[in-house]
Amino acid sequence: MSVTSKSPVVLQVRDLACERDGRRLFEGLDFSLPSGAAIQVKGANGAGKTTLLRTLIGSSSDFSGEILWRGNPFPEALRGMRESLLYIGHRGGVRAGLTPLENLTWYGADNESALQALDRVDLFGFEHSLCHSLSAGQNRRVALARMFLPQAPRLWVLDEPLTALDVAGVAALEKQMSAHMDKGGSILLTSHQPLALPGLDFIDLSDFVVDESFTDIGGEHVFS
């Protein structure tokens, strides 16, 4: 499925700079994520990959530059973006006190599609057992099951989705991601493991890193 140049841009970032603990992680970042495309954010540890993802989903507001969701900027567009956002972070977002089925219905899925999704991450038979009795791998698959729901949200933001997955799991995930892209969805993700995903673009944060000399971070004073 080729991303035609005219396909609508879902998420656009202009001249983005992020700061954490008084240190500038990167600056001058520009990219746009059209619908039906996927971008993997590369960069050394601590280069700010997670900070970038958290900024794009509106969880951190220490940034300069512009983030546009379908043309209109944050924070006005934040609510609209969150209506079509699926975010999976380092922590899966699975409640130990609930069963996998209840977890998925908590994310707004109806029973039938939740069962379908759980089956596709081969959790058949575990739908009704409490998550704290399942293994870490199974819990991870419950977290990823949200991507297998029929009406999955349009924008997927995934932080290291492949961790703790076996070979079969990775393959199933890659297949589901490309199916999502075919349906016009877009994906933004970070991953240490290589990903076999047709049409995957890359951004390397180290191209936008600020060199760590003694810069006057305090900024020139405004009044002479």
């Binding site: 209506e83 079509s84 349009r154 349906k183 016009g184």
Partner: peptide, 15 residues
């Protein structure tokens, strides 16, 4: 072109 497939659901039904 992309738009022929059924568009991915817009507003997710969140709790």
């Amino acid at each position: 072109s992309v738009d022929v497939q059924p568009p991915v659901s817009e507003a997710r039904t969140s709790p």
